[in-house]
Design a protein around this nucleic acid. Sequence first.
DNA 1: GTTTAGCACTTAACCCTAAAGAGTGCTAAA
DNA 2: TTTAGCACTCTTTAGGGTTAAGTGCTAAAC
Lengths: 349, 349
Amino acid sequence: MLTQRQNKILQAIVRQYTSTGQPVGSKHLAEELPFKVSSATVRNEMAVLERAHLIAKEHSSSGRVPSKEGYRYYVDHLLDPQAVTDNDLVVIQNSLGTSFQKIDEIISHSADILSNLTSYTAFTLKPEQADVRLSGFRLVPLGNHKVIAILVTDSGDVESQAFTLPRNLDLDALQAVIRMINDQLVGLPLTSVMKRLNDDIPLRVMHYMHSADGFLDLFDNVVSKAAREQFFIGGRLNLLDFSNTRDPQALQTMYRLLDHNDELSHLLDAGKTGEGVNVRIGSEISKDKVLDNYSLITATYDVDQYGKGIIAVLGPTRMPYSRTIGLVNAFRQELAKRLLDFYWHYYDS
Amino acid sequence: MLTQRQNKILQAIVRQYTSTGQPVGSKHLAEELPFKVSSATVRNEMAVLERAHLIAKEHSSSGRVPSKEGYRYYVDHLLDPQAVTDNDLVVIQNSLGTSFQKIDEIISHSADILSNLTSYTAFTLKPEQADVRLSGFRLVPLGNHKVIAILVTDSGDVESQAFTLPRNLDLDALQAVIRMINDQLVGLPLTSVMKRLNDDIPLRVMHYMHSADGFLDLFDNVVSKAAREQFFIGGRLNLLDFSNTRDPQALQTMYRLLDHNDELSHLLDAGKTGEGVNVRIGSEISKDKVLDNYSLITATYDVDQYGKGIIAVLGPTRMPYSRTIGLVNAFRQELAKRLLDFYWHYYDS
DNA sequence: GTTTAGCACTTAACCCTAAAGAGTGCTAAA
DNA sequence: TTTAGCACTCTTTAGGGTTAAGTGCTAAAC
């Protein structure tokens, strides 16, 4: 357990380092502290903190830098719950205040707002209802060998895909297949639908048409689009600024990570523990070395019966945690309000 | 006019420099040349080339580097029309050989292939038919306040967008609006449709519903999606490697350019002059300083009655032009073949 | 009239050293 | 327990010397 003074010193080190990026030395720190002590005293305390692995030196005679554990301690115990500034709150409310046609627009726009406010990279996932089910699949012929396939889920999501019938494919047979699909699969959770797609469905389709491939590709495509946990990313380019590396290789792996949906959504989901805002620092995010110098701040937002969604911000470990956490927290509340309003306006009565 | 020997020397300088990235000096060059001369002679010839602004020094005692004009001269006069290797050709044919459901899939995949082959960034536009017209607009109700709007053009493109009816919007009124739209606008080129959308259409819509905004946004959205010259980009991340800059600012402006559709499609269109492959170097691409160290190679591909499309590769000015141009040229031919095949398979009889 | 050997000159890149600056740990006194 | 003082460590910066690669020019050779 640290003494009160050690807490204050660690806090000051983190604040100083996150704002300047330079290792902090005992002399400068002594001047900044809210109580009057000499640099020698600060040095003694620093030695304690270093033995506790909360801070580290870059070389034997350099100033101190917070370690991963130091940031962790800071976030857990020393963060003063800094409320978001009025100004920021107004920005959030204004940006969310405009009118939107679709829920996806709100969520996608949210990623942009959040990345702008923080100047890091932001992620948003829309409210997720457990166990989404297929509520209908249809085919609308558009003439001239074109049809559009439309899938609707019971959560109200719609996916569609236009395609052109190969000359050897018969529209009537196709409609029969669609009837069969609706017969067999409506009401099932999308996950089961996916399973059946690799199971008995191909055989059934073969009753109606020569080769099932073309149709199955199409259907599979639409189903997995609907089943995918779709998230939005804002401020990708900010990564170039805050990543602190000029190595194209490292940047490429980071950007590839951003494009690699499964992995990323896995990382975001892992932050769903508990209420409120979750902070993961460096290696806490994942085993992957490339994330060592980043922190991921995730939070859920709760839209009552409509489910919970996730927002997240990826920044450097060296970030102003108070501010960022404050922003994320304010944002999750405002977004929840906005979405409730949206649902009220468009659904039920 | 340059002598034969000067041509050879310039050619060798460009070859050497594009492959090593190092300024080339007289001594090394003398050894590489296909005829036997001393380094002093080479120096004399280099002085001539420098006076002609075809090559330049980085500092007073450095080797020579081709200037923009030097590359230009090289591309125009000294390029030996290097055929693509068998290996590359096989790669192209295999990648294009797989089966595709939609033309967009082919075009989008093409951008990836081309960027992989060149290890630069590639762009592809689908064959463009002049004067695309609106051939139908419909609304399919999906129940539960959802509808999907579908727009079809006479070129066979389909755009759709799902949306949720606000509670104060009446489906019958909406259908009446759709009838009116079809009545008024079917058969018109999309450009005229866009014009009418800002002209008399809003008034007409107001006959049927209180506020036209919601519907007009939707319709406008779908029409402009269909009217947009949609292109695909492959190998965005390659830019990190070949751009030669570690300055995040410069990289950001480049990436922003890639996302800025209008500007980019303008640049690509500008390469449509004449048959075959067009090479623009540095400032020839645009006035914008950020493009100074890049070259843009564009080419059209011709799918007979189905129109012409564009493919392009963006790389550093310092690129192996023979190879890249060869690849782009081979690719445009293979892609044209493949698309003709695709159309034959899906359309007409 | 070209071509070439020779040479003086220029510049970047590298390595070394010295000095300055920032910071540390330790000791002994307050 | 705190602090002044001091020796020590390490990084950063500037300067100087050397090397390597290259140039332009001149005068001789072809």
